[in-house]
């Protein structure tokens, strides 16, 4: 059963929240001085690379999302064994709840919960941040012009959906007032 089974998808106003099956999630932690070698290995084996802080390297089949000091998550494919020569690999596939918040008001919704500016002009495609979403630590990545991918620990899935749903409804109600109609 997926982390958000029975909870998603949701739509409120113009914003949609849907669960994402991220495939395999593998944490990559390069050994001291190994980042450059790991970058080459990721390029040769997966067509990806080692991301700079705050960046995600995305492709059709997956990506590498920076998640902290000397840490990134390989999303999608099973890791090539060659990566283990340069980094500690940990399977975290079952540890995360992953959802896409899509629609132009996505940043407006997250502005109610996240202390980081996530508008496209400040947070372009391929940008990623570790930050707070309400009281949860989260990883947030812009994967498209109107899509923000949110990852929280799996145990937080229900809280994530609840908090986002409340924020989505509040933004939709505000838009309704702006348009002169009653709150929807």
């Amino acid at each position: 059963m997926s982390p958000c089974a029975g909870l998603l998808p949701l739509r409120s106003g113009t914003v949609r929240l849907a669960e994402v099956d991220p495939g395999r999630i593998t944490s990559l932690m390069p050994g001291p001085g190994q980042a450059a070698a790991l970058d080459r290995a990721l390029s040769e084996t997966h067509g990806l690379g080692w991301p700079a802080p705050g960046q995600a390297i995305l492709s059709q089949r997956g990506g590498v999302v920076w998640t902290g000091l000397d840490q990134a998550m390989l999303m999608g494919p099973a890791p090539d064994p060659a990566l283990a020569r340069h980094a500690a690999l940990t399977d975290q596939s079952d540890a995360w709840a992953v959802a896409d918040l899509s629609g132009g008001d996505g940043p407006e919704v997250l502005a109610r919960l996240v202390p980081v500016d996530l508008r496209p002009q400040a947070f372009a495609e391929g940008a990623t941040a570790r930050t707070l979403l309400g009281h949860m630590t989260a990883s947030i990545t812009r994967t498209g012009p109107e899509t923000l991918r949110i990852m929280v620990f799996r145990s937080m899935a229900r809280t994530l959906v609840h908090d986002l749903h409340a924020a989505m409804d509040a933004v939709a109600a505000r838009r309704g007032l702006d348009a002169g109609g009653p709150p929807r």
Binding site: P53, G54, L69, P115, A129, T131
Partner: peptide, 11 residues
Amino acid sequence: PLCGERDRREF
């Protein structure tokens, strides 16, 4: 140095 300017409550 890695994340840029952030709110105190993250620290």
